[in-house]
Structure formats: structure tokens, C-alpha cells
Amino acid sequence: MSPASPPLPTARTDAGAGPLLRAWRERRGVSQLDLALRAGSSARHISFVETGRARPSAEMVLRLAEHLDVPVRERNELFLAAGYAPHYPQTPLDDPAMDTLREGLEHLIRGYEPYPALVVDAVHDVVAANRGVEMLLEGVPDTLLTPPLNVVRLSLHPQGLAPRIRNLRAWRDHLLAQLTRQLALQRSEAVRRLYEEVAAYPVPDGDTEPDPGPDGAGPGGSGGHLPGFALPLRLAHDGRVLSFVSSIATFNTPMDVTVAELAVETFLPADPATAAYLRTRGGGA
């Protein structure tokens, strides 16, 4: 049984920026004195800001948000709450100004072929995918492939990839934990709805493979076929089981909300057999 999704961080712009800043400071486990030292201010001033006795300058809002590692979208909420215009633009991905970025991302994931790679947005909708991903989706019903294609829904839906994931329980736990961490950082009703939807999907009584043990090799310890360096995605495909480990990359110091919420996920073969099969399917050497 899946835990309920965590409550969204509260944000009342009519209450000023103080309560929001205090909530972020407490969430990060930082004292007023520590934050003041980092931001070049005083604990007294931080206290006055949090209680509404002082209105922070726009520069101070930005500085505090940076030191508290507030997500870019939530930084705009802080600016609005403090009475300023949003600091970061939110440019649609299909805007001509994004052409170079979009082409660069598509070139990046094409260059990763024959291995699967895709780009997702803040709610895990697929923005771009390469032929490696398309290959893994063979046999998935068209109803699940209608845009916007959501990678979490596709992975856990009973008619999606879920019946083919050999370690579904472990992979499901991984995806739900990822959504939980995301909800702890941003007020996204879309992500909350996604969590509640996929957490309610039926879970099989047991996987065809056991969950990895402490070293990633199954309950019996080392000697199993699961790689010990990361949780694998074990996926049945074309009469065999392919094994991947995934990595996620984001942009460094983004200055746009849209860009800040993009992520590139790549799937690296976790064993020689998977690598060889993908090279064969992709026409590589």
C-alpha cells in the first residue's frame, strides 16, 4: 500500500514573503543566524523579514532564495509575495527563442542512440525521445501513447510497461519516492494528481525477480545478476530481459522556469547482453 502524497508547501502571497522564507529555511534545516551569515545580513533582519516587520529588497529575496536553494518557479512566488514582479521568465518550449535549446536537446539524445534517452518537463511529460525509447515502447497501446506522453504513467500503468518490468515493485517504489521528493520542493497540483493516480494502480502479488538486497544482488547478497551500483530497470522485450540503469541531468543555473524544469534521462545498459542487443537493433558496430 502506497503512502499518501505529502502535503504541498503552503504559499499565501497575501501574507507577504516572510512566511514563505521561513518555511523554506526550516525545510532546509538552516537557522536564522546561519542564513544571515550566508546572505550577508543579520539574524535580526532575517527575523524581521520572516515576521513581516521588514520588507526585503528584491536583491535580498534573490539572495535568500539562492542560499536556500529554492526552485526557480518557487522563487517567482517569493518575488510576488514580496510585492515584486517575477524575476524569472517562463518561455514556452515551442517559442522561437527556444529553437537552439530544443535542437540541442534533440541532438543530444540522438547522439546517445542506440541507448534510450528522453527529455521530460516538470510533470514528467515527454518533450523529446530518441529511437531507443521508441523501441522499448513497441506493443504499448496507442491510448497510452497519445500526447502528452507521461513517462511515470507509462511505466506503472497496467497496460503500459508495468507487466513487462521484472522488478516492478522496486522500480515503482523508486518512481513514487521521486515524486514524493518533488512534492516536498514545489507546490504542483499536477504532480500531486499524477502521484495519486499512479499510486492507485494495482500492484502484482510478486515480481518475477526479487528486490535487490543491500548490495543490489538480491536477498542472497552478491552473486546475483542485478548490478550492485544502482537500481536497475529490468524490462522484458523481444523474448529477452533488458537491464538498464538511469541517470538524470538538469541545467546548471537556469534563468528560465521552463528550462529549470527540463530533465534529460538516459538509460545505460547494465550488462553486456543488453548493450549488444541495442547495438544490433540500432545498427551499431
Rank of each mutant, 00 (worst) to 15 (best):
S5E: 05
P7I: 14
R12K: 08
R12W: 09
A15D: 09
A15G: 14
A23T: 10
E26A: 13
A43D: 06
G52C: 04
R63S: 08
A65I: 10
A65M: 11
E66S: 14
L68R: 01
V72H: 13
R75Y: 12
N76R: 13
L78C: 11
L80V: 11
A81R: 09
A81G: 05
Y84F: 13
A85T: 15
P86M: 12
P86V: 10
D94V: 12
G104H: 06
Y112S: 09
E113K: 15
Y115D: 12
V123Y: 01
D125P: 08
N130M: 03
L145S: 04
Q159K: 03
Q159S: 05
R164T: 04
L168W: 01
R169W: 07
W171S: 03
L176R: 04
A184T: 04
E189F: 03
E189M: 10
Y195F: 12
E196G: 02
Y201G: 08
D205H: 15
D207M: 00
P210E: 11
G213I: 00
G221E: 14
L226T: 00
G228N: 02
A236S: 11
D238F: 03
G239A: 02
S243R: 12
F244R: 02
S246W: 10
S247M: 07
S247T: 06
I248G: 14
T250Q: 14
V257Y: 09
A260E: 07
A260Y: 07
L262G: 12
V264C: 13
A273E: 14
A273W: 08
T280F: 10
G284H: 13
